[in-house]
Design a binder for these strands. Structure first.
Lengths: 340, 340
DNA sequence: TTGTAGGCGTTATCAA
DNA sequence: TTGATAACGCCTACAA
C-alpha cells in the first residue's frame, strides 16, 4: 500500500530519479551533501526498494527455490530450517514448494520457480520421479541447481546427502555384533537413491561378517502407511524367523514396532529393531529402538551454501560434487529408562 | 534464461505487442484468425507470462504469505499443507516465512511479505509477540490478514483456531471421569492465546465437577525442552501429589512421560497423562497417553479459504470472525497393545 | 480490428 | 556531480 518510491524522493528533494538511485546505492560520483540529504529523507520515509522492480530489471530475485516432496515431514522441515538459516544471513529469501511425491507436480513446481525467477533451485526428488529430463535441461542451461537427500546420480550437479551407505552399514553391523544373524530389511520405493544406498550398506555389512544375503529377507513398501502389518507378519512366518529388522525409515520402524507388539513379539529380545530416522521424538519416548539419525538441518545448510556458491561464482567447480554427511547411530536399550 | 516474451511473439508474427497481449487474454475485440495464430504460436513456443512483470504492473502477485513460528513443527507443517492445498487450486502460490518464535523476525517477515507484494497474509504469532501494532496497522490499511492458531484477540481480523477451550475441557473432564482429583496443568508462555484458552477449559471442567482450582498445580514453561524435569519433580513432591497431568502440548506430554518414568512413577496407574498434540507418531507408539488432537490441516485450509475470500471480495464481512475447529480426544489405555 | 504510447520501480548509459 | 532516456515484460487508454 502506497509504498514510497524513488520517484517520490526525487520529487520531494527536487532531484532526478537517477541521482536518488545513485545516492541510495552510495555511488562515489554523488556529492556527499546530496547523498546525506537523500539518505536521510529515505530513512525518514522508510523507503524500501521494490524487489519486484529489481527482479524485473535484473532478471534475478535473491530468492532460492526449494522443492521438497512434502513439508509435513520432519526430515524435510528440518532441512528447510537449515536452508533458511543460511539463506537468511546471506541475503537470500526462500520460496518453498511441494511436489507431494508426484512427478507432475514436481514439474509444475520447477516451472513456477523458474517463472518467478528464483536465482537457483534446491530439490529433493519426489518418489515418483524417474525421468529427470526437466532437471537435466536446467543444468544444461547452466541454471544453478543442487540436489539433496533424494538425488539422481545421472545428474551431474552438486548433491548433498546423508551417508546412507555408511549409516546402513553401521546399523547392520550393530545388529550383527549384538548377535543377530537373520536380519530383515524393509525399504521404500526401490528406484530411489536413498533406498539403494541403504540396501547396499546393509548388504556390505552382511558380507563383511560372512553372513548370506538372503533375498527373502528384503521387502519394499510404498509410502502408504499400513502395508506394514502383512509384511511383518510374512517375515515372522518364515522359519527360521528373522531375529532383527533394519528399516529404511522411522515411520517404518515405528510401524514395525506396533506390528511386532500386536503379534506378541518381544522387542528386542526376539526381534531387534533399527531404523533410519528423521524424528526427534524417538528420543523422548526412548523405546527399544536404535536409530540412525540423519543430519537433516546440516544437509539443508550445506545444500544452501553450495547453491549460493554456484550462483555467485558460476565458474567455480569443486572436485567432488557429492557430499555425504555422517549419520549417527543412537542406541536405545529397552532397559534404558524407557518403556518398562 | 531466454524466456519468450510477448514482444518476441509480436515480432515473429508481425503484430504489435498489444494485439498479442489481447489475443492471449482472449479479448473479444481481436479477430478469431489473429487470436488463433497468436495462441498457437504461444503454445508452440511455450510462452509463459512473466509473473514479475505482472506483479509490478498490477501491484499484486497471486501469492499468499504465510508466517509461522517454525516450519519444523508438526502442527505448522500440516497447517501449511492445508494452506497450500487450497491456495493451489485457487490459483495462488504460497510464500512461507518463519519468525523463529522471535518478535523482530516476525516484523521482518511481515515487511518482506509486503515488499514482495503478497496479496494477503496468514500468520500465527511468535511466542515472543505481545505488541501487535505491526498487524494492526496492516489491518487498518485494509490489507487482507488472517490469523490462525496463535491469535491476538485484540485484533479484529478473521481468526481460525482449534477449539482449545473445548479440547482442554474434554481432556480435563476425561481425567475427572477416570477418577482423578488432583490434576496438574503444564502450559506454555502465559500470554499466548492458546495457553489461556486451554487453561480456561481446564478450569471450567474442574468447576463443573466441583473440584477446586489449585494454583499450585499450574505450571508454565518456555519452549526450552528441558525445563520439564524439575517441574515434574516439583509437582510430585507435593502432598498429596497430583494424580494426573494435563499438558498443553505433545512435547510437554512426552517430556512428562520421560520424567515420570525416570522418577519411577507408573503411568497411568499413579499419574495419568493427557496432552494436546500435533504429532501423529503418538498413534504409532500407542503409549499410555491420551491426546487432544488438533485439526492442523483443516485449520490451514479454513484460514486460506478465509483469506482468499477476503482478497477477492474485500467488502464481504462474515458475522463471526473467529472460527473454532473441533479437537478430538483420543484415548490410549496403557493396556492397549502399546508398551508392555 | 489493430497499433501507439505511457507507466509500474529501478538501474544503466549517455549527455550535460 | 547531476539529469534525461531507455529498458526490463506486461497491460490499457487512446488513436487510427
Amino acid at each position: 500500500m502506497e509504498a514510497i518510491t524513488i520517484k517520490d524522493i526525487a520529487r520531494a528533494l527536487n532531484l532526478s530519479t537517477s541521482t536518488v538511485s545513485r545516492a541510495l546505492r552510495g555511488s562515489y560520483e554523488i556529492s556527499p551533501e546530496t547523498k546525506r540529504l537523500v539518505m536521510e529523507y529515505a530513512e525518514r520515509m522508510e523507503y524500501r526498494p521494490n524487489p519486484i522492480a529489481l527482479s524485473l530489471k535484473a532478471n534475478r530475485s535473491k530468492v532460492l527455490g526449494v522443492i521438497v516432496p512434502q513439508i509435513a515431514n520432519h526430515f524435510f522441515s528440518q532441512a528447510i530450517n537449515g536452508i533458511e538459516a543460511i539463506a537468511y544471513n546471506r541475503g537470500y529469501h526462500v520460496m518453498i514448494m511441494q511436489s507431494h511425491e508426484n512427478y507432475e507436480r514436481e514439474l509444475i513446481a520447477v516451472q513456477q520457480a523458474l517463472v518467478r525467477k528464483v536465482d537457483g533451485l534446491l530439490l529433493s526428488l519426489s518418489s515418483q520421479t524417474t525421468d529427470i529430463a526437466h532437471l537435466q535441461s536446467l543444468h544444461d542451461k547452466k541454471f544453478p541447481l543442487v540436489l539433496f537427500d533424494r538425488v539422481a546420480s545421472a545428474l551431474d550437479v552438486p548433491k548433498i546427502i546423508a551417508d546412507n551407505y555408511e549409516g546402513a552399514f553401521a546399523a547392520t553391523e550393530h545388529l550383527i555384533q549384538a548377535g543377530r544373524r537373520r536380519i530383515a530389511h524393509i525399504g521404500i520405493a526401490t528406484y530411489m537413491s536413498i533406498t539403494q544406498e541403504r540396501l547396499a550398506g546393509y548388504r556390505a555389512a552382511l558380507e563383511k561378517h560372512g553372513l548370506p544375503f538372503d533375498e527373502t529377507l528384503i521387502r519394499h513398501v510404498g509410502l502408504g502407511q499400513h502395508e506394514i502389518d502383512p509384511i511383518v507378519s510374512e517375515l515372522l512366518s518364515q522359519s527360521p524367523a528373522p531375529d532383527a529388522i533394519f528399516t529404511a525409515s522411522d515411520r517404518l520402524a515405528l510401524g514395525c514396532m506396533t506390528a511386532l507388539r500386536q503379534f506378541g513379539v518381544q522387542i528386542p529380545e526376539q526381534v531387534a529393531l533399527v531404523g533410519f530416522t528423521n524424528l526427534t521424538v524417538a528420543h523422548l519416548l526412548a523405546p527399544p529402538l536404535t536409530t540412525i539419525e540423519q543430519p537433516a538441518q546440516e544437509i539443508g545448510q550445506m545444500a544452501a551454501e553450495r547453491l549460493i556458491l554456484q550462483i555467485e561464482r558460476p565458474q567455480h567447480k569443486p572436485i567432488s560434487d557429492i557430499q555425504k554427511l555422517p549419520t549417527k547411530l543412537v542406541v536405545r536399550e529397552s532397559t534404558a529408562g524407557g518403556m518398562k
